[in-house]
Simulated scan of single mutants.
Amino acid sequence: MILNLPPLEKRVVVTAVLIFSALAGFHLFTHQYLELSLWISAIFITIYLYEKSKQEKINYQHARQEWDQITREQENMILKMETMMNDAEKLGILGELAAGIAHEVRNPLTTLKGFLQLMGTDLDEHKKTFVDLMLTEVDRIEMITDEFMSVARPHAPLNKEENVISLLEQVEKLLHPQALLNNVQIVLSTNTNLVPLNCGGNQLKQVFINLMKNAFDAMPSGGNLYINVLQQSESIVIHFIDEGLGMPEEVIAKLGEPFFTQKEGGHGLGIMMCRKIIDAHNGTLEIQSKVGAGTTFTINLPIQR
């Protein structure tokens, strides 16, 4: 017990115990038992006081460590709050810009949509198919402007039963020319008949388009984009797996922050909007990546919200 003392305190206590022991031995030899008992008590009191002091130091160290931990947590919380305030300020500015941009975009869209509808009345069925496809994309552009404005004014997705595989196939067909240009092969697979999902179909298509375009950009030399769809007990899980460049952890941590992007000419709003849409569906978006080994985006959507 005494051998574990710090050097200075060890010398003091050992010296005191030796002196008390010598005095106790003397009184034992002279048969002075009262004095003997006093010096033995002094030995035990000395050791007890030291042990108590040592325990108080240990308790102080523990309390100091807990205080330091609380201080670090408070500092981290303050940093997060400052980041949230900065993001809120950016979103406020972005919302004002979005309102103006959406207004300017809708005007030519209205004209374009009207002329397409007029053209469709004079075309044969084969050519009318292309016009219908363009009208569908014009409707989606209008929806995207609404979603862009939802940065400042979020709204709930439309509740309609949709087939996720059908939505993915529509997006795959839409992006097929771009995939060919980027030498990317899209591999869509599912191992079960999926139940319909109560969701906003156009909003999920916007998420799928963003993630697939990100995968194209991540594979400048081409590669495979695997889209795996699974149905679990209470959710539908969609994996977007590319063979691209991958990302380090510090980049993954910042994905979804307004205006954070690694793309030349990018605006950093794609992943942020994807997260907002998936959050509105009570779902989750997880990102796993390794530099040089590709990236996996995993969407988990509850079947009943």
Score class of each variant (00 low, 15 high):
Thr129Lys: 14
Phe44Thr: 12
Met149Trp: 01
His103Ala: 15
Leu94Ala: 15
Ala99His: 08
Glu66Trp: 02
Ile43Lys: 01
Arg72Tyr: 09
His103Asp: 15
Glu51Val: 05
Asp132Asn: 15
Ser53Thr: 08
Lys80Tyr: 08
Asp146Tyr: 02
Glu137Val: 09
Tyr33Leu: 11
Leu123Val: 05
Gln117Phe: 12
Val105His: 13
Thr129Ala: 10
Thr46Pro: 04
Thr136Val: 03
Asp124Arg: 05
Lys90Ile: 10
Arg140Val: 10
Gln32Arg: 06
Glu125Phe: 06
Leu79Thr: 12
Asp139Glu: 05
Tyr48Cys: 05
Leu109Ile: 13
Gln117Arg: 08
Tyr48Phe: 11
His126Gln: 10
Thr136Cys: 10
Gly114Asp: 12
Lys80Ser: 14
Gln55Met: 07
Glu73His: 07
Ile58Gln: 09
Glu75Gly: 04
Glu56Met: 12
Leu116Cys: 09
His126Ile: 12
Ile141Lys: 06
Asp146Met: 03
Thr83Val: 09
Ala88Lys: 04
Tyr33Glu: 04
Asn107Phe: 11
Gln55Leu: 06
Thr145Glu: 15
Glu104Tyr: 05
Asp124Glu: 09
Ala102Pro: 07
Asn86His: 11
Asp139Lys: 06
Asp68Asn: 13
Ala99Pro: 00
Asn76Lys: 10
Asp68Ala: 11
Phe148Lys: 03
Arg140Asp: 13
His126Asp: 08
Phe115Ser: 13
Phe130Cys: 05
Tyr33Val: 10
Phe148Glu: 04
Thr145Ser: 15
Val131His: 00
His126Lys: 10
Ile141Phe: 11
Asp139Ser: 04
Ile45Thr: 14
Val138Ser: 12
Val131Ile: 15
Gln32Glu: 06
Ala42Ser: 10
Asp146Cys: 01
Glu51Asn: 08
Leu109Phe: 02
Glu137Cys: 02
Ile45Asn: 02
